[in-house]
Design a protein around this nucleic acid. Sequence first.
RNA 1: GGCCACGUGGCGGAGUGGUUACGCAGCGGAUUGCAAAUCCGUGUACCCCAGUUCGAUUCUGGGCGUGGCCUCCA
Length: 466
Amino acid sequence: MTETSSKTLTLYNTLTRHKDVFQPIDPDRVTMYVCGPTVYNHAHIGNARPAVIFDMLARVLRHLYPNVVYARNITDIEDKIIEIAAQEGVEISVITERYAEIYRTDMGALGVALPDIEPKATETIPEMIAMMERLIAAGHAYEAEGHVLFNVPSFPDYGQLSRRPMDEMVAGARVEVAPYKKDPADFVLWKPSSDEQPGWDSPWGRGRPGWHIECSAMIEKHLGDTIDIHGGGIDLQFPHHENELAQSRCSHEGAPFANYWLHNGYLNMNSVKMSKSLGNVLLVHDLIDQAPGEAIRLALLNGHYRQPLEWNDDVLPQAKAQLDRLYGALRQLEDVEPAAGDHVPGAFLDALLDDLNTPKALAELFQLAKLANQAKDGQEQAKLKAALVQSGLLIGLLQQDANQWFEGADGSSDLDADAIEAQIEARNAARAAKDFAEADRIRDALADAGVLIEDGPEGTKWKLAG
RNA sequence: GGCCACGUGGCGGAGUGGUUACGCAGCGGAUUGCAAAUCCGUGUACCCCAGUUCGAUUCUGGGCGUGGCCUCCA
């Protein structure tokens, strides 16, 4: 069963604009950083996409390397946070801790494991200040009216990641340029805080960090000057990632920042980008009340991570039906002990290793389900069960008990399991007595209560209606 | 205006220079007391127009359409 695989991971690298073979700096310590949430409100389903994608990549990396350090930050100082905290009349930590916890819970429902490190901006202020001092000393940053600004022209490679020529950007700039900027493209590293605003003492007075510096400082502190993989949504490519890259390289004497840059595509709501300003957002917090988290995860993995992903009312029920099929295969094997050893099919692994081609990997998973449904031989069944569960683990699916999936812990029926079993027993008694009218009456009554019956050679099973 | 993606059957969505990916839904059959589940089978799908080619959905050019980015939205 164990087929050979190339075992070579290739990833599309935004820096080079093509698929590159992944070669870690240190195979014994693979480092990945992903931009996490700014915690002032609930995450929407588009926000969940990178969380799920890079959770999966971490799983794949762990399958290949003994030690993976995955860091995903929490941005807990930002002007919107300050605004909302002021509205509620509380410290910003009240807001940020509230929404950080909701974020962890919501993502957890989608099978997203906590990262190894979850650094917070407010816990990295000294490192940011040290980095800015180095940037100033090296002539890449300067102080102006209580601000510290990064001087873009001081870094000739600026624009390399997003492929934007600087002159064009400045020409197309549609924002008023602050008078204290030496160059219109310069961006803020540090800005002064008023007495009411949260702030930290610094060589430039009491203030707070700009957006980009935190990621650079957190990466340096926890992962090192040069990391293997940096991930995030495509919308962060510019300016956020471009600026991060500039700061980090300039404060590390030009050393490479991240060897592989990965960007996931947008999630579209009825063909239009889901965004707060358009008001077409679906919150993960609400979705997990409407569908199993695992179905939401599968819906996000149904498309390739770099492509735009369509989200509409059909997507979630379809994902749930797909899981019904996969778990259906597993339920048929509920009494089969999975075979020991590695049974991840080579074709499945190769699909993931080819720039995380989840649609192709899922096709392999359905092939396994079909084979499992056909299999009669016990050994074959054991291997197929192992293959399904182990493959599922790599993408964060199929880890719950099959009966639990169908019988659901979320309770969309008024009846409890004991009552259902009693009804099934009564119905089977009627069937044995050839009283099919009574048997069908019981089945219809259960169906009305949201419970569907399936008779099989080994007895009657049931599931909650989706 | 500049730059960049994308356009595959009812829906989602891979992929390939020439043999219907896959899943959901639909249809036919097997099975079933009837169902469900399962199995088998099933759909003139690749935006338009040129070009390259023996052959293009796949390459090139043009067009149309949709969407995105252009200083703090994953």
